[in-house]
Amino acid sequence: MPSDFALKTLNTVHRTLLRVSGGRIGRQAIGMPVLELVTTGRRSGRSRAVMLTSPMRDGEAYVVVASRGGDDQHPAWFLNLRDEPRVQVAVGGGARQPMLASIATPDQRARLWPQITARHQNYANYQKRTRREIPLVLLGPVG
């Protein structure tokens, strides 16, 4: 698992590429759309942005995987949105839009997980590395 410093550096480089290229470079990664998720820090109360891939959509919602590369700890962004589900999302370098995050129910996960891992084996490999069940999060329109 990369260090927090390495992950933050990669996020910064990715965000910069999107901005400098006007969204032409970095809109997709490994065949998935890239989005910027902005959460509210659960302890600091400050905005926290992270670049993520979305392996699929479920209706209007973007689905993201809280894998943290198969680490035994949940990613900070997941803990933040668990406590405050009102988030902002920018897809492919576009403008940020308010969205509501919801953690997939067991039934939703049972339906979505096989679809995700069939298309993107890396997520199945991450699940094998950890004892925790990797959560799925749906990012959908507000209201």
Rank of each mutant, 00 (worst) to 15 (best):
T40P: 01
G94D: 14
E36T: 15
G45H: 08
I25A: 07
Q127F: 00
R82H: 13
G23Q: 06
T117G: 03
P75F: 04
W77V: 01
Q73A: 13
A49G: 13
G70V: 08
P106L: 08
R96C: 13
L138D: 07
T53W: 09
L35F: 06
T117L: 01
G92C: 11
S47K: 15
R68C: 02
Q108T: 08
R24T: 11
F5Y: 15
R132M: 03
G93Y: 08
Q28F: 15
V38C: 07
K8C: 00
R129F: 09
D71L: 09
V87E: 05
A118P: 12
R43P: 03
G140T: 06
Q88M: 09
V65T: 10
A118S: 11
A90G: 08
T16N: 11
T53N: 11
P55W: 06
V65Q: 10
W77Y: 05
F78C: 02
T130V: 03
D107V: 12
D71I: 02
A6Y: 02
T12W: 15
Q88N: 06
R57E: 10
F78M: 03
S54H: 10
E84F: 15
S3F: 04
L7Q: 14
R27W: 06
F5M: 08
A6K: 11
G140W: 07
I116F: 01
V20S: 14
A61K: 05
D72T: 06
R46K: 09
L139A: 11
D4Q: 15
P114N: 02
A6L: 12
V63N: 11
L35I: 12
Q97H: 08
N125Y: 09
Q88P: 01
A76F: 02
T105E: 00
L100S: 09
P85F: 05
V89Q: 10
R86V: 07
G94V: 14
V38D: 02
I25C: 02
N11C: 14
D4P: 07
Q28H: 15
Q73S: 11
R82L: 11
L37S: 06
R15G: 08
Q108C: 10
T39A: 01
L100C: 07
Q108P: 09
P33L: 12
F78Q: 00
L112D: 10
M56Q: 03
E36M: 12
A29P: 00
A76E: 03
Y123S: 13
R131K: 12
T9L: 15
E60M: 03
P85W: 05
D58V: 03
V34L: 14
R82N: 04
R68V: 02
Q97A: 13
Y126C: 03
P33W: 14
R119D: 02
G45P: 07
L7W: 08
L100I: 07
S44T: 14
Q127I: 00
W77H: 01
N122T: 07
L35Q: 07
L52M: 11
Y123E: 06
I25F: 10
L10Y: 11
M1H: 13
